[in-house]
Amino acid sequence: MTEFFKTILPPVIANSPILDILVIIIKVFIVVNFAMINGMYLSYVERKVIGHMQVRLGPMRTGPHGILQPIADGIKLFFKEDIIPANADKPIFFIAPVISLTAALATLAVIPFWEDFIIADINIGILYILALSSLGAYGIILAGWASNSKYSFLGGLRSSAQVLSYEIAMGLSLVGVMLLAGSANLLDIVKAQENMPFGMYLFVQPIGFFVFFMAALAETNRAPFDLPEAESELVAGYFVEYSGMRFALFYAAEYIGMVLMSFLAAICFLGGWKGPDFWFFSKVPPVIWLLIKVYAFIFFYLWIRATLPRYRYDQLMGLGWKLFIPLTLANILITGLVKLLIET
């Protein structure tokens, strides 16, 4: 992209740092819009997919097959009254959804869409993602606390405990990948997968993938781990006091979180933007391959939501600490040993 701008812009600008900033702004613009549209339409896809799984149609009224439903929802939420509970801690109440959404969006900076399209090619990509998604938990905890409502408070507490414990499992499940690739940079990880069976880490890191998948469900508060917002217990959990646009921000953050986790899964375990290299498959643009993998993963998310009941809070924690963390630790040990044996 930089080369393209160099040809059309006057040399004074083309050779100055302004150009780099300009290119980054354009990239950010593209990625944020992509994420927002994905987040919006994910709500539609979720309702449609689950609807069809449950012998009903899902949204049908707004536009053909309800295709404009997310836009209608967005407009509605935008014009809703912004209700602030009288006893709420106002500054924190205001800032909590912003933290959630910002953390979710900022994570996209290190996601490579294909080889040449990445906003920030930093060498600690995975660590950056883990750090920011933990930061997102702050939004949830603060929202639960600042609402000054018992239900939100319980939801916030549950969420903080859940996100913290599953953060560990998720981090550890990605260690196997980092060991194999020898790097925490997402570009390097994709490149390192080329000489693996089917060009994916999925088959050499099945345990890692399994734990990552479960932890991703728990991280993004999705069924069967959707305890922080368990509607039958806590009504809506931490955001029960939110309305209008602030509520929409939480929702957007949740969906973008889902998209992000799917990207991470596709990049770390499913070979990123690389597709099969024969027949007309090799002509398909790499970004399409990445999106296919991402959406397949998202479909799994929805499928699980339509199928499984919800875990209980203590069972969820038990599962995380007693099963997933030991599993990933064993996985790291085995991966390290095998790698050591092959290399020596």
């Binding site: 689950i50 799984m53 449950q54 012998v55 009903r56 069924a223 069967p224 959707d226 368990a230 039958s232 939501r305 339509a306 199928t307 499984l308 009941p309 919800r310």
Partner: peptide, 12 residues
């Protein structure tokens, strides 16, 4: 079933 989070049984 819906209370325990299994929402599909509800519609079936």
């Amino acid at each position: 079933a819906l209370d325990l989070g299994a929402m599909t049984v509800f519609l079936y």
